[in-house]
Write a protein that binds this DNA or RNA. Sequence first.
DNA 1: GAAGAAATTCGGTTATATCCTAAGGGAAAC
DNA 2: GTTTCCCTTAGGATATAACCGAATTTCTTC
Lengths: 225, 225
Amino acid sequence: MLASNAVQVPSRTTNRGAPAAQPRIAACIAPPAFAASQPHQVVLYSPNAEIYGQGERAAALYQVVFGAVRVYRLLSDGRRQISAFHVAGDVFGFEADGHHHFFAEAICNSAIRIYRQPIGADVAREILPVALTALIRAQEHLLVIGRQNAAERVAAFLLDLFERQDGLPQVELVMSRTDIGDYLGLTIETVSRVFSKFREKGYIRLQGVRTVNLVKLEALRALCV
Amino acid sequence: MLASNAVQVPSRTTNRGAPAAQPRIAACIAPPAFAASQPHQVVLYSPNAEIYGQGERAAALYQVVFGAVRVYRLLSDGRRQISAFHVAGDVFGFEADGHHHFFAEAICNSAIRIYRQPIGADVAREILPVALTALIRAQEHLLVIGRQNAAERVAAFLLDLFERQDGLPQVELVMSRTDIGDYLGLTIETVSRVFSKFREKGYIRLQGVRTVNLVKLEALRALCV
DNA sequence: GAAGAAATTCGGTTATATCCTAAGGGAAAC
DNA sequence: GTTTCCCTTAGGATATAACCGAATTTCTTC
């Protein structure tokens, strides 16, 4: 079905999660289409498996078929900043100079569609709006972590997930508290405290640790205006 | 030379700077070219003049001919996050959905080349790498304000200016301490204190308030690795 | 050159989030 | 069913940067 030389084997395992498993080539499922007309392959990744690493040559675009991905950068002492989470349908892996400036890892079991063709004018026109959306998201996130306090950051995070889920008020957190903290520029203790405070105030209801019901949307919205 | 209906008049004045002056149409100078083949106009802006505002319809791309621009976003209580500074040659004003999500203002007297044409496939291919560079810059800035302390942020800021100036160790700060603070997610007092500390340690030398000599580049680099 | 206004720097206090430690809970493995 | 491990929650001390007030410098304007 697919040539074996197309398999990408993760070269690196992070020190934050479980050992990365070998990605396997999946049957070609057909979920949210981006450029399905373009030749591509679909690769499966286990939790915490590296999809690409900082410094590697970049020659592909990636689209989440199912699962979730975190894109992040590290300081030498281990401090980590997650710049984005990606879920089904999202395209990521844009690089300007042929090299990856970030790490990308699967958060949970995930399937990633990989496009390895060079970008022609037609493709550029297709992915430009996707790249611009990512740019705006990143710049809006700058406001959140640069100028908002802990509660405001968490509220913005929950509302962002909410809106990405087409307004379903029950939000599934695929990522851990550590991931959320590293995305919001906070520690896990602070994230946990804010979740507790929101629960006490009746803004949210927690079913287990990974399921959040947004009860008082207005209160959350009022926090991050 | 240029049609008078092409003049863009700033509709809004910020509460942070001096009143905005009317932009005037400039003679067509010919500095760093981006898409000089495309039809465009050049508009002059006075310090603190608004180039575009959040919510306005976005139908143009902008390139700094000379001067400097800040792009920022506001919270309702006035907190401000500057997402980028742009200097001669930089292209900005990308928007994904036909609306501006940010404000753009001239910092000093500036000339801006404005391209109003819709983006075709050929143009998309040309500006995609520019947009991707902006995306990477924004995401790298997330690491700075999300995970680095005050000294590390200022060091990263100075080194960024240094590298954008092709390695000239004398850096001219076109922006105020307030702007720097709002770019780094710090208050002006903290920015000022870090400058003083760097001066005491011999990392930098200050000639006046707006001229910085980077004396110990290695020390600054060591701060933000 | 003098006066006024704005921007910057400085000092001290306070608040927020981190750091550190430990307890509690849930999922996976045995 | 039990154990183990990891993630999460919780509590208290600490540190960093914000906040407040004021002095100083720099730039404008006359």
